[in-house]
Design a protein around this nucleic acid. Structure first.
Lengths: 119, 119
DNA sequence: CCGATTACTGTGGCTGTCAAAGTAATTTGT
DNA sequence: ACAAATTACTTTGACAGCCACAGTAATCGG
């Protein structure tokens, strides 16, 4: 349908997206960016600056930890790993999203019934 | 479930929400705010400043027009009316939302399958 | 050996939402 | 009759998240 998703719509979901990917195994920046692209069928291509901002935010909050891969040859890679707290955050955010979906559906598609005037 | 929706999640949807309400008949600020509250079962209570920003944005874009109600007594009310262009915008935004829902679902809940590495 | 790709980082700007406050009229309670 | 609550619209300033752009540096393919 639409080719890509707007930045206002994706806002607030990037951290959850990264947590979901890391919940399936440690990974690093570039690989995660590619995974996001493929999972969304190229509907969302995350900006690198955004991605590393997400990493910093998540690490600061204790939702992920990081370590440098010991590649003796090849470019250095910083791997990220989800923490137990991060898994809880993920579960919480997923529940929040499922709730938000319903609310926005009602607000965008919903008809106004009679009892709207009451407070 | 959750008591309220986060401002980052609602971002970008407020204009569509207002268009949906105005598509069901002319209305004014305070009434629209109340309708939003009730449609969302109090999960989203729009800030007044946000609402009037939305009005200005929509009117500037030609999606709505406004007129002062001729209340001879009682507080003045500025009514808003959706335009034909606004109806088209609404339909467009609804389609976009339905698409975005699917994409975010895949990104937040999706498992990474084997063919992720290909570009 | 040169361009493409991988990989990470920093700076600065934009946009939408909100908090807070102000103005002003009407309605409700006692 | 008067205070408090409610209705109704508006302005100002701040914040947070995402992005564009730019930079560094290494490897790999033809």
């Amino acid at each position: 349908m639409q080719p890509e998703i707007s930045k206002d719509t994706i806002r607030g979901h990037t951290t959850t997206i990264v947590l979901n990917i890391l919940n399936q195994g440690d990974s690093y920046g570039y690989a995660i960016a590619k995974t996001i692209k493929h999972l969304s069928h190229a509907a969302y291509v995350i900006n690198e600056a955004t991605l590393y901002t997400v990493f910093r935010r998540l690490e600061k909050n204790g939702d992920i930890t990081s370590y440098w891969g010991n590649e003796t040859q090849g470019g250095r890679r910083k791997y990220y790993q989800i923490t137990v707290q991060g898994q809880a955050t993920l579960a919480h955010n997923v529940a929040e999203w499922n709730f938000a979906k319903q609310v926005i559906d009602e607000l965008i598609l919903g008809r106004i019934d009679a009892d709207v005037s009451k407070d």
